[in-house]
Design a binder for these strands. Structure first.
Length: 535
RNA sequence: GGGCCAUUAGCUCAAGUGGUAGAGCAGUGGAUUCUUAAUCCAUUGGCUCCAGGUUCGAGUCCUGGAUGGCCCA
C-alpha cells in the first residue's frame, strides 16, 4: 500500500467511488468569475491579517444573514476538522464538519485526498485560536490528484526533482513561486519604464540565416519548404538597428535568445535579453538612463517582494562608478600595492605606464603568461593586438575583483560600476571614439561583480562596419568559431543612413537573480534545460 | 572538459571500523473532531541510481557508467 503505484491505485479507487456518488473525478461544471475571484483574494488576505481576523464572529455568534464566501484551491493539509487550501494569493483554512454539510457533500468529503482541488463555501468565522476559517456549508470536489504531494512540512527539496517537476515545486514551495511572480513584475517594470520614455516595443525574427549581433555559437535548424539552413538568433541587435534606419528612433525588444554553449549557474542555452536602441543619444546618455531604469525596477520589486530583496552585498543607491577599462587595470595594480586586493603575477610585473605603452604591455604579457593557468595562457596566446591584450588582462586580472575594488563609501557593500572605453577589436559593432579611434564608446555594467549589460554608441559608418565584418572573418580563419558572419544586408541598411544612436543590452535572467537574491539562473527559469530523464 | 560531493520507502532523512535496512510525514484500518507540522492506537510499504568486482557476507569497500549539485575551465 505504499509504493507509488499502490498510492496511485488507492486514489484511483476513490475516484471510482466518487463516480458511484454521481460526482465526476475531473468535473468542469463549477466556474469562477471576477466577483468570486475577488472574494477569494480578499478572504485569503484577510486570513493573513491577525487584527482583522479578531473582528470575525465565532461560529456560535453567527447570524443567519452572515454572507457565505467561496474558498477554492488545492488542499495541502488536513488538521483535525480543518482543511488548509492553497490559492495563488496564499493559504486559508476551512472548518469542514460533516454535520454542517449535506449528506451528499459529507460523503464526497470522505473521498478527499491531499492535493485534490476543492471548493468550500460558508460564512467566514474566527476560530477559538483567533484564526480565520470558512465554516463549510457546501463542499465540492473540483479535481483529483492521483500522485501524493511532497511532505507538507519539508516540501520538495531534491534539486533535480524540483527542476524536472517544477509544477510540484511551485505548489509545494510557495517561496519558489514567489520568485517567478517577482520575475514577471521585473519584466513588466522594464516595459513600463521604456514605454514611458517613448520606446516602441517590437518583435524581430528568432530564425536567422546568418549570425550577428554577438560572438557566440548558434543552434542550427532548417526550414523544409525553402530547404534553408537557419540558426536561432544569438542576439536581436542587427534587426533592431535596421529599424533605426527605418525611422523608429526608439525601439526595444524583450525576448528569448539562444547560445549553443555550456550550462552553469550563470548560463542557460536559452535566455531572455532586453535590447533597446535610442537615436540621437550616446553611450554616456545611456549610463544615466540605465541607472534610473534599474533603480526604478528595483523599487517596484522591493515594494511587492520585500522578502526577496533584503540582505544585499551591493547597493544600488550608491554612486555608480564610471571607470575606463585601462584605468580599471591601473586601479587593480594600485590597490594590490595597498593590500586591498591580492597580489598576482600581473601586479608584480605590470606598471601603470605599461598599460599605455603597447610594446611594454606586450612584453609584460609574454613574461607573465607562463605563470598563469592553462586557460588564461590560451586566452592570452590568442591575442594579436594591443586592444585584445588589454581586454584579456581586464577579464583575467580585474573582473574577478570588481566587487572588492569599487565599494560604497563605508565599504560595507559593492557599488555598481560601468567599465568604459573598450578596444575596438573586441567591439565589432560599436562606434570609434573620436579622440582615440583604437577605442570605442562602449560600456559594460557590473553589479555585485556580475556582468549585467553591454552598451555602446552605435557604429553607423557603413564602410567602417564592413571593415569590422572583414576583421571578424579573419578571426574565423584564425580559428575563432564564435566570430560573426559578414552581413551584407546590414551594410546596405547602414548605407541608407542610420541616425546617430546608442544601444543597450541586458541579461534579464541575471537581473532577476541579482534583485531577488537567487544564486543560480535555474532558480529564475521556470523550466531550465536538463538532460532528458532515462526511461 | 577537469575536480569534489550526492543518489536509501511517495516526501524528508537515519543506518561506527562490511554483519538481518529504520524513523517521521503521507497511505491503510480505527478513535477523536477548534486544528496550527492536529492527536492517539494499529498497520502496509525497499532492485539502497545502474553494471561489474572483492568478500562467508556490500547501502557501506573497489572499477566503470547514469543523473544532479558545487567549484574550476
Amino acid at each position: 500500500m505504499a509504493t507509488e503505484d499502490e498510492l496511485r491505485q488507492t486514489r484511483l479507487n476513490k475516484a471510482e467511488r466518487l463516480r458511484e456518488l454521481g460526482v465526476l473525478p475531473y468535473p468542469n461544471t463549477w466556474r469562477t468569475n471576477p466577483e468570486l475571484e475577488e472574494q477569494r483574494r480578499h478572504l485569503v488576505l484577510l486570513a493573513a491579517d491577525e487584527e482583522a481576523c479578531a473582528k470575525l464572529p465565532l461560529e456560535d455568534e453567527l447570524t443567519d444573514d452572515a454572507p457565505h464566501v467561496p474558498l477554492f484551491g488545492r488542499v495541502i493539509a488536513k488538521r483535525g476538522p480543518f482543511l488548509v487550501i492553497r490559492t495563488p494569493h496564499g493559504d486559508a483554512q476551512s472548518l469542514v464538519r460533516p454535520d454542517s454539510l449535506s449528506e451528499r457533500d459529507a460523503a464526497v468529503l470522505k473521498l478527499l485526498d491531499l492535493a485534490d482541488h476543492v471548493l468550500v463555501e460558508g460564512p467566514a468565522i474566527r476560530t477559538k485560536t483567533g484564526a480565520l476559517a470558512v465554516s463549510a456549508r457546501r463542499y465540492e470536489h473540483l479535481g483529483k490528484a492521483l500522485l501524493p504531494p511532497p511532505a507538507k512540512w519539508h516540501g520538495l527539496k531534491d534539486v533535480e526533482k524540483r527542476y524536472r517537476e517544477r509544477y510540484v515545486d511551485l505548489f509545494a514551495n510557495p517561496a519558489v513561486a514567489e520568485v517567478f511572480r517577482a520575475r514577471t513584475l521585473i519584466v513588466q517594470s522594464l516595459r513600463r519604464f521604456l514605454d514611458a520614455f517613448g520606446f516602441l516595443e517590437v518583435e524581430t525574427p528568432l530564425l536567422h540565416s546568418i549570425r550577428g549581433g554577438a560572438t557566440a555559437k548558434p543552434f542550427d535548424t532548417h526550414h523544409n519548404a525553402l530547404d534553408l539552413d537557419l540558426i536561432l538568433r544569438i542576439a536581436p541587435e542587427l534587426h533592431l538597428k535596421r529599424l533605426l534606419v527605418g525611422g523608429f528612433d526608439r525601439v526595444y525588444e524583450i525576448g528569448r535568445t539562444f547560445r549553443n554553449e555550456g550550462i552553469s549557474t550563470k548560463h542557460n542555452p536559452e535566455f531572455t535579453i532586453l535590447e533597446f536602441y535610442m537615436a540621437y543619444a550616446t553611450h554616456e546618455d545611456l549610463m544615466d538612463l540605465v541607472v534610473d531604469m534599474i533603480r526604478a525596477v528595483d523599487a517596484d520589486v522591493r515594494v511587492r517582494f520585500a522578502g526577496l530583496t533584503g540582505d544585499r552585498t551591493f547597493d544600488l543607491q550608491a554612486d555608480w562608478k564610471r571607470v575606463r577599462m585601462r584605468e580599471a587595470i591601473a586601479d587593480r595594480l594600485q590597490q594590490a600595492g595597498q593590500g586591498e586586493v591580492p597580489e598576482t603575477p600581473w601586479t608584480q610585473a605590470l606598471s601603470r605606464d605599461a598599460i599605455y605603452d603597447e610594446e611594454a604591455f606586450a612584453t609584460a604579457c609574454n613574461a607573465i603568461a607562463p605563470k598563469l593557468d592553462p586557460a588564461a595562457q590560451k586566452q592570452l596566446s590568442h591575442c594579436e593586438t594591443h586592444g585584445e591584450r588589454v581586454f584579456a588582462v581586464f577579464e583575467l586580472l580585474v573582473e574577478p575583483d570588481l566587487t572588492a575594488m569599487y565599494r560604497t563609501p563605508n565599504g560595507a557593500q559593492s557599488a555598481p560600476v560601468f567599465i568604459t572605453e573598450f578596444p575596438w577589436e573586441v567591439s565589432p559593432l560599436a562606434r570609434r571614439n573620436d579622440d582615440d579611434p583604437s577605442y570605442v564608446d562602449r560600456f559594460e555594467l557590473f553589479i555585485d561583480g556580475r556582468e549585467l549589460s553591454n552598451a555602446f554608441s552605435e557604429l553607423n559608418d557603413s564602410d567602417d562596419q564592413a571593415e569590422r565584418f572583414e576583421s571578424q572573418l579573419r578571426n574565423r580563419e584564425r580559428g575563432d568559431d564564435e566570430a560573426m558572419d559578414f552581413d551584407a544586408d546590414y551594410i546596405r541598411a547602414l548605407s541608407h543612413g542610420m541616425p546617430p544612436a546608442a544601444g543597450f543590452g541586458l541579461g534579464v535572467d541575471r537581473l532577476v537573480m541579482l534583485l531577488c537574491n537567487q544564486p543560480s539562473i535555474r532558480d529564475v527559469l521556470l523550466f531550465p534545460l536538463l538532460r532528458p530523464e532515462a526511461e
